[in-house]
Design a binder for these strands. Sequence first.
DNA 1: CAATCTGGTTCAGCTTTCCTGAAGTTCTGT
DNA 2: ACAGAACTTCAGGAAAGCTGAACCAGATTG
Lengths: 302, 302
Amino acid sequence: MIRTEALRVFVTVAECGNIRDAADRLFRTQSAVSMTLKQLEQELGASLFEADRKNSLSDLGRFVVDTAKVLLRDHDTAIDQIKHYATGKSGRLRIASVPSVAALLMPEILAAFVKERPTAEIDLVDTNSADVRRLVSTGQADIGIASVAHGDSGLLHEPIFEDSMQLVCQETSPLAHHPGPLEWRHLNDMALILNETTRGIQAVEFRALAARTSLNVRNVISLLAMVRAGVGVTLLPGLATMGLPSTLLARPLADQGCRRQVCLLRREGRVQSPLAIAFQQHFIATLMSMTERFGILWTYKE
Amino acid sequence: MIRTEALRVFVTVAECGNIRDAADRLFRTQSAVSMTLKQLEQELGASLFEADRKNSLSDLGRFVVDTAKVLLRDHDTAIDQIKHYATGKSGRLRIASVPSVAALLMPEILAAFVKERPTAEIDLVDTNSADVRRLVSTGQADIGIASVAHGDSGLLHEPIFEDSMQLVCQETSPLAHHPGPLEWRHLNDMALILNETTRGIQAVEFRALAARTSLNVRNVISLLAMVRAGVGVTLLPGLATMGLPSTLLARPLADQGCRRQVCLLRREGRVQSPLAIAFQQHFIATLMSMTERFGILWTYKE
DNA sequence: CAATCTGGTTCAGCTTTCCTGAAGTTCTGT
DNA sequence: ACAGAACTTCAGGAAAGCTGAACCAGATTG
């Protein structure tokens, strides 16, 4: 059996022209190198050098050096690739995230992550929570960031942070300059536009309000356009209100229990790729240092 | 350190889908395979399979299989090439030979040799003895077949066979039908054409005859054309007379000591390529069984 | 529901391989 | 002829790899 390492020893000796230098380079003793060479020659049944002195190769030796050099190069790059993949330095990662996180938090988080991993390929999809869950559970995304729905089978979720819901209205709205947090009753006279994030609100007062309206807009851009056009007001998580257009305002609610929970989702019973693991660690660690700046409430455990 | 063999074990398990079958294929026990896998996973710091059962790969596992498969393929073909080269099954061999051997013996000898070595590249040059020696001593040929000249420095020669010199004349020549072997004196009245092979003849009687002529023709084709045209007679080794044109005849000489010695030549102090060694063995062995057919006298020792 | 089967892991002990340090050999230049 | 350089050989010890036996955990079955 010809060991790859024996070939490496031989190539090193051929390059150095003598055993001592090769032994130094390989962090072995002369005798170890000598014996490896002898064993290799025995294996091949022919001499690799012209003489005892290792400064001139035999015909066979030249052939073996040439062949072994490309073998070793290929071998080393392949092992390297494997190690990179195994340590999450390369590979492919598909992230599905709700728009607020994708737009406001991800840029900063991903910037540092990809900088350290120039060979990693990362796909970021932003879509609504339900779709994020679908993508993750069907294996089309490796990691999801969304609110959690009970009854999600096959998904593991780890709560990351909470985000208090805010009212979004025109700056000309009567509620715009209302002093202090808004009570539910203040919304009684307003036209309310529902959206995906309002589905998670449990408060009975809100559910009563919601029952009176049938306008439900999915896309955030459209939703804000509606509010801007005076169709009505809506509720959005605090994070999503950070880049609000100038004619709109966000106002806090008095009901502190009215929050959306953002979770990290992954498929159950599935070994994650090292890159996915690395991303999660990076995501948690980076995000933790960003909580204050974005006014979010950290709920991650462990 | 990731061993190539560990990757081979992993790929085999991935292909078999379980350890038992893989162990059988690898001629190892289950436990050995299990431990190798465990060690590999430890080295990579991540799991290669989805579960204990080895029938579904993790993301990392899939990547490693893909990468390792090409690595192993390249590795195996490279090792194979080296082994082929080392055992003389492939490589390049440059043979320089005198025309008589090249034309009459080599076809049969090489036919079998190349048939067993489809990937070997063989160059055969036919030229005169002096040039054969030059090619071998300058390293332009690996093996030479020629008569030996004393004072050849840097050349090793092994005598192979002897060949008795014969007179070549027109069939209309007075000597053509002379009964019994020819004495030197029978040539007294003949015009003699010298050639390279006559240089090696020591007999004083011949040297006296040779002193009287100044016509020396190198190329065998030209030489025979001369004889055919009636310019004179010449002497050639028996082997070279076997394909004589129909109007020419070869006649034996009485002087049994008048022979040319054919040797196998190689460069001194130089390790031969395995293919060259293989060729020599084949050459000697095949030629030995051809001696009678070609009327040559075997002189190879050892 | 216990009994069995299947696929895998762990462990102690053995064998093989590999490496080292010291001593020996061979070549080379002076 | 001698010193030094280059390499080999050898004995002993460390490490790695393999095996057989025992063990474990899920499935399957009478």
